[in-house]
Design a protein around this nucleic acid. Sequence first.
RNA 1: GGCGCCGUACCCAAGUGGUAAGGGAGAGGUCUGCAAAACCUUAAUGCAGCGGUUCGAAUCCGCUCGGCGCCUCCA
Length: 497
Amino acid sequence: MPLKIYNTLTRRKDEFKPLVEGRVGIYVCGPTVYGHSHIGHAKSYVSFDVIVRYLRYLGYKTLYVQNITDVGHLTDDADEGEDKIEKQSRKDRIHPMQVVEMYTRSYFDDMDALDVVRPDISPRATGHIIEQIAIVQKLIEQGFAYEKNGSVYFDVTKFKEYGKLSHRPIDEMEAGARVGVNPEKKHPADFALWKKAEASHIMQWQSPWEMGFPGWHLECSAMSMKYLGETFDIHGGGMENQFPHHECEIAQSECATGKQFVKYWIHNNMVTVGGQKMGKSLGNVINLKDAFKKYSPLVVRFFILQSHYRSTLDFTDEALEGASKGLEKLLNTVRNLREEVGKLRKLEVKGSEMKDSSFKSQDSIFVDLVGFKKAFLDAMDDDFNTPQAIGILFDLSREVNTILAGGKAEIKILQEADALFNVLGGVVLGVIPAHVEAQSLEGASENDLIQFIIELRAEARAQKLWTMSDKIRDGLAKLGIIIEDKKDGTTWRLVSS
RNA sequence: GGCGCCGUACCCAAGUGGUAAGGGAGAGGUCUGCAAAACCUUAAUGCAGCGGUUCGAAUCCGCUCGGCGCCUCCA
């Protein structure tokens, strides 16, 4: 089955065909760095992370560009209001670039915690002022933009296809329904390409017009086309940016180049909190740093991928708890699987020394690993259906647990199952870490200490001193160390958070 | 007002024409000294409601009810 992607431009699932065989160029709208990242950022960037991971898994040489917005994003989309970063800098009494640096680092810290693979290029708007000015000049020359009082605006009436992404005909939009109309604009839907800056504005640059700064929409056009070409494969972002942000990007880019800007538009849905939208004005924004105090980043990632990227995701404790337990179940399987593989490998070494392979089970169980893999890939090919793909991992988990419990496992099948978990659950989805079986604490001595305690407990159990052995188990549990007695010995693991 | 989404068991969540995945919680059982983990069984004759199309609909069409989003801030 070929990969199909829901394309906002066509409102259909389109078969994915890259512009250049074997290569993909993808641009995703990055954060405006004036505050810490929240769970909405997590949903967006985890979703696109899996999309990029999957494209690479399919063998596409993928160039992933994601901007850092450090200028031009105003507190108001009617091209009025303050620059968000300047506003924050005044509040904190630090330089705007300090704000940018601080929250850019914070952003990457959070994304690293979520195991989001970093973009190949993270360009900043302030580093591409020249490229942005060049586009504005081109648009003016070709009659798509006009200057007024030192600012430059895009003339939406000159671009007949304006509205083709969001399907909003400009004529039917009530002019100034929510915001006042900027008198400098010819048409209320015109948007700023360049804004003249007041003297007090710290971040401003020279231009053919007045000293000023670029409009928010412009940076994405400039940087995406610079690194990916005038036409590229995939542009992603949050649904709320379909209009006006992405609509404006299309207008200015296609008018500047005369070519199609983007082939596939992917939009991910929003996060709600307790059924309500999450927004600054509602005061219910959950920062990732706070969320991580309660749920591990891996749980958050797993939770996000358990629903589809185009569905809204309701962030509730009950749902997070459920996801946490589910993930634990999956990781238990992988841990047990890897322990068993390790055990069998040792036996195999011994066995080969004795030239005797009788330790192998004669009637090992067949597991249709190829079938599981195909089902997983089919799910991913269908517009990155990660919830369904995760369901397949659980199906595989049950099969593996069954053969592990039956003790009829053949090492080859177990190794292949492990490899499958690694590739599909690890490399592609990023929800199965490479090392779940290593319960390392700070150092080796602690691990030895726990092993020693387990041995003491084994002696107590041998003497049927149940009160004592239970006391040891309970005591370790309180320290976050879970003891499990199995047929062929006792294992331990750290309680998952 | 314009554009759009959603309503699937107690909770989360796939499924877009062929007879309801998966996870959590619950109930019963197996294993175990007991736990834990794991496995087995059990869970909607039903997919908001009402009509319609069809041999057949959660899936398509219409209407009704309920919830939500974008067009301000926000991924």
